[in-house]
């Protein structure tokens, strides 16, 4: 069983050396990116540093060549088991052409301090659409978006404990129960 697990993890992590179309585009504009294995269907996946996220998205969105102006989702993935990171994943499409790109910002779980959340810059200032997606990711996966205008839980009640989509999440006390010390209900 353990062997199998390692094997499958290897398969995900294994990165081809060549650089993709969007990676090349970003490189030309002076932004370093790392190519990750393509998503199924041959869609390019790149990894960016958190500090480069804003500038990269700005250029990808406004450039006539790429024009990735449709933010499909912002998702959080707890991949501590496979890569030891929290990923903030951005699916970008274009309204006018067929470009597709997946950007991942990986935050190493080791570098996150005890009792604090992994932090990624918010892109709500560029895409209002990201507002709710980021709130949801904060709520369910526990990734903090720095500079978000309204960083609150969105789907769970405001007094919920923990982030349910993390793989180590355990619901300690039923939050709808009166016994929950944080609940006013």
């Amino acid at each position: 069983m353990a062997e199998e697990k390692e094997k499958s993890i290897e398969k995900i992590v294994e990165a081809p050396p060549e650089i993709g179309r969007f990676g090349q585009f970003l490189k030309e504009h002076g932004i370093a990116s790392e190519k990750l294995p393509d998503a199924a269907g041959g869609i390019e996946v790149i990894s960016l540093d958190a500090k480069n996220l804003q500038s990269a998205l700005k250029i990808l969105r406004s450039s006539e060549e790429t024009k990735l102006d449709l933010l499909i989702t912002v998702s959080g993935v707890d991949s501590r088991q496979s890569g030891g990171t929290f990923d903030s994943v951005y699916h970008l499409w274009s309204y006018d052409n067929l470009n597709e790109l997946v950007i991942k910002v990986k935050i190493k779980a080791d570098e996150v301090e005890e009792d604090s959340l992994p932090a990624v810059p918010s892109i709500t200032n560029m895409w209002p659409a990201a507002n709710w997606h980021e709130r949801e990711t904060y709520d369910l996966v526990g990734i903090k978006y720095l500079g978000h205008p309204y960083p609150r839980r969105i789907l769970n009640p405001w007094d919920w404990d923990g982030h349910p989509l993390r793989h180590d999440y355990v619901q300690i006390v039923d939050a709808l129960n009166d016994k929950n010390p944080h609940s006013f209900r």
Binding site: K11, A39, A40, I72, H91, V102
Partner: peptide, 8 residues
């Protein structure tokens, strides 16, 4: 199979 995909 292992991997990731987005379809719509």
């Amino acid at each position: 199979k292992a991997g990731e995909a987005f379809s719509s």
